[in-house]
Computed example of a mutant assay.
Amino acid sequence: MSELDVPESHPRYQSLLTRHRIAEGVDRGITSRQGLIAEGRGEAFDYLLGERTIPSADDAARAAAALLRLADRPVISVNGNVAALVPGETVDLAAAVDADVEVNLFDRTDERMRAIVAHFRDHGADEAGVAVRGVDADARIPGLDHERAKVDADGIGSADVVVVPLEDGDRAAALAAMGTSEVVIDLNPLSRSAQVATVPIVDNVIRAVPTVADHARDLSGASRAELKRLVREFDAEAALAAAEDAIRSGRLE
């Protein structure tokens, strides 16, 4: 099946398209087989959210854009699922906020690392002036004993704001312990990732990444005082509570 084989009029178009991209990512050596399980878990939460961006998630995306615009060294951390689902959109966001992209994998191999880096370059990273990091891995995140501890010293290792798409609880907690501000995109409002985030966005990554990019462009002329106000007034606990209520209530639109 190619993406063209799924008509956009199909009521499950986005879900089918997402499944196809993840499966294709596995075939290409970009996504791990475990990524299929993670995608299925996320799809269940998205279904309960009504497969839409709820108002609190849009507010979070705007706060995230403001935080990224304030950052001195922003980095977007990506794994195989993100590479399969939103490669071009991630490059677009990185270009909008002058961020680097860094590949960070739990199931890390040199082959997968090179494949994912090449994938982002194929989706316009070089043309957009976006650096794709992760191969050097010359630093470590303290407190982690697995492959996700490996980071670039000039990337996540020295970032002041890191975007963490998709659930990644222990690393998100370790980054928070380092004093790094985090934008977390996670469909589960009860996950450790979302709970420790400076700005948790409870939304599907295929909607959240372009939404943050749109807000970043909209805020391109905002003063630092205005950007700081948006970050300061964002209530992470309230955003998570609103998402949990949307999931538990079952009020689908």
Rank of each mutant, 00 (worst) to 15 (best):
L4P: 00
D5Y: 02
P7I: 06
S9F: 08
S15Q: 13
R19G: 15
H20P: 01
T31K: 03
T31A: 13
I37S: 07
A38D: 13
Y47V: 15
P55R: 10
A66Y: 00
A71P: 03
P74H: 08
P74M: 07
P74D: 08
G80E: 07
V86Y: 02
V91S: 03
A96L: 05
V103Q: 05
V103K: 01
L105C: 05
M113L: 14
V117M: 01
A118P: 02
H119C: 06
H119M: 01
F120V: 05
G124L: 04
V132T: 02
V132E: 04
G134V: 04
D138Y: 04
L144P: 09
D145I: 02
H146Y: 11
A149Q: 11
K150Y: 06
V151C: 02
A153N: 05
A153Y: 00
S158N: 09
E167R: 14
E167V: 14
L175W: 05
A176N: 10
M178H: 11
E182A: 14
E182T: 15
D186Q: 11
S191W: 07
Q195W: 12
V196N: 07
I206D: 13
V212G: 06
A213M: 01
D214G: 04
H215G: 10
R217S: 06
L219D: 09
G221V: 09
S223R: 07
S223T: 15
S223H: 05
K228E: 15
V231E: 02
E233Q: 10
F234H: 15
A236M: 03
L240V: 10
A242H: 08
E244D: 14
I247K: 00
R248D: 13
E253L: 10
